[in-house]
Design a protein around this nucleic acid. Sequence first.
DNA 1: TTATTAAATCGAACCGGTTCGATAAAGTCT
DNA 2: AGACTTTATCGAACCGGTTCGATTTAATAA
Lengths: 335, 335
Amino acid sequence: MATIRDVAKLADVSVSTVSLALSNPARVSQKTLEKIRQAIAAVGFVADPLAQSLARGRSRMIGFVVGNVGNPFFGDIRRELENYALDHQHFVVVTDSSGKTDRERALVEHLIGLKTAGLALAPSGYDQDYLDFIAGLNVPIVCFDQKVAGIERDFVGSDNYLAGAMLTEHLLQLGHRRIAFITGPSHMHTATERYRGFADTMANAGVEVNPNFVVDGQFTRAAGYEAAMRLLIQPERPTAILGANNAVALSALQAMQELGFRCPEDISLAMIDNVQWSSVITPRITMVVQDTLALGGIIARRLMHRITNPQGAVEPPQDFVLTPKFVPGNSCRRI
Amino acid sequence: MATIRDVAKLADVSVSTVSLALSNPARVSQKTLEKIRQAIAAVGFVADPLAQSLARGRSRMIGFVVGNVGNPFFGDIRRELENYALDHQHFVVVTDSSGKTDRERALVEHLIGLKTAGLALAPSGYDQDYLDFIAGLNVPIVCFDQKVAGIERDFVGSDNYLAGAMLTEHLLQLGHRRIAFITGPSHMHTATERYRGFADTMANAGVEVNPNFVVDGQFTRAAGYEAAMRLLIQPERPTAILGANNAVALSALQAMQELGFRCPEDISLAMIDNVQWSSVITPRITMVVQDTLALGGIIARRLMHRITNPQGAVEPPQDFVLTPKFVPGNSCRRI
DNA sequence: TTATTAAATCGAACCGGTTCGATAAAGTCT
DNA sequence: AGACTTTATCGAACCGGTTCGATTTAATAA
């Protein structure tokens, strides 16, 4: 590999001039610039990003940290970020914490060690220790998905309260009263907001919620399945189930299928967030989806703004909350 | 941040001794080691990975390059690799080429620039230019999924011929004769092998394949859908469709549903490779799946072996081919 | 023409580690 | 005790860039 010194030698200028020509061509004379250009081409010089990062104290990498890269929600956001970053000479380093806080922390520390220019982070923690950790990071960070109280950073996400409310209202309009709700982890903002949207809408409609109809699905497949089973074996069953995310809702569908319930004839089902092959799942689940592309775009622009603008770093954190979209399926019947 | 010089000063030894103590403690005397240990703890020293990489010419990062991180097949492999790498002080950088060869190339070049210790690569190219590019990379590489003729690297994958043959035989056993096959891109090894398995098994059974029953689905959703539609509008329809991968098979299911065909009553369906929520797709698709966890484990071990063992780098490339597994569903009926 | 200012270029230090040959200290052999 | 190893430590060069104050050169003003 050719180094900057090879270029300098060939162009018969000093190393610092070559460096200057690369970073700020306007400050180098035309003929010198030309000599350097030719020398660079002749030796095939490409600056070593590692050496640059070490010297500058900042790299051109952006860290992307989520709990599950396989989730299409994160996948769409990742793609948007990658495209935007690439257009701005930045490179996205994707990492997966598997939803584990300690793993996430290790990854973030590693990324900081790499002197990443910025971080797009879907936070997985919430306690004081975690907050301190995030607060201590001296890098532009845009958080998304989970709004965590106490993190003073930009946040990009959807109106989860509305998401829960929309589906609840839809079920109420169809005549349902015995509506069950499979929740997510209580420490997650998305989970509590979606539940609030459900509970408030029920209350506003004057419909009392059977406490046995609210079960914890942890946003996971296993817990969601168990929670759904608990719902289905009750003597007085719900007429509709609302899953707080895709995993718990589809687990509920599976449980229903296994027990012999038909959807929507016996029980209606609705969920928040899409999955990859939802169009071939029978019945097509009625859902509320987030505008992942828009979210990704905002995250990308906001992060690059903070990274590239000198004064962008000190701007106060801002929240961007998008409205989710109702996507009707045929999993909810009128009763 | 504390540097190695701070440690050296405090421990009253030279910088090189500290470095040696860190990389090869056995070669430093006990008492010096202890002094250094204390000094490190006192100043809170953590080695800067960038500086290390620059000096060593190698980093502790492993590049993971695939066409679609969202595909659970790659997701499982990624997870295995991450776990194994983490246990060996290595860090996986995930990248997604979206299946585009030029993008993959840019990513690989970037990773090489980062002086990654090794690459786990699902190759997307096949022409001479691509082969030269891969051959020119002076880094441990383990290729997987696609076996590309001419790449002299370790390869880890499944017996795709067998996968195609197994499902074909199954359909034949159920009495099907008019079996359609939706193929993948002809330059992909997995695609051609799966097709060979199909064609050979049909031939061995003395069943002639209707040329109209072999359509190109490009392994993608869009092309798969179109290909399936072409099959379904033929006057003499197939009684069974075999999808060469999950995307084309599920697109076929969607097409069938949209046109009003019932599966398996009207048309049977089988596919190669699983998808995330296959258990809630009706009907449960009969499929052949790869042992992703085992594949991931082999990839991880093989790559780390080459990275960490001095002589591992020069070992001749080796192929690891696993046998896929038949997973019966209820999408194929006896006729 | 000379003093003053601006533009172009350079040298050296620096980022934070690693590596290797040289030197010093300790141990072994005859 | 002297010669020869082995072990422990060190200094300096190096990885490949950036940065900034100093110096040289060119342009403008008086």
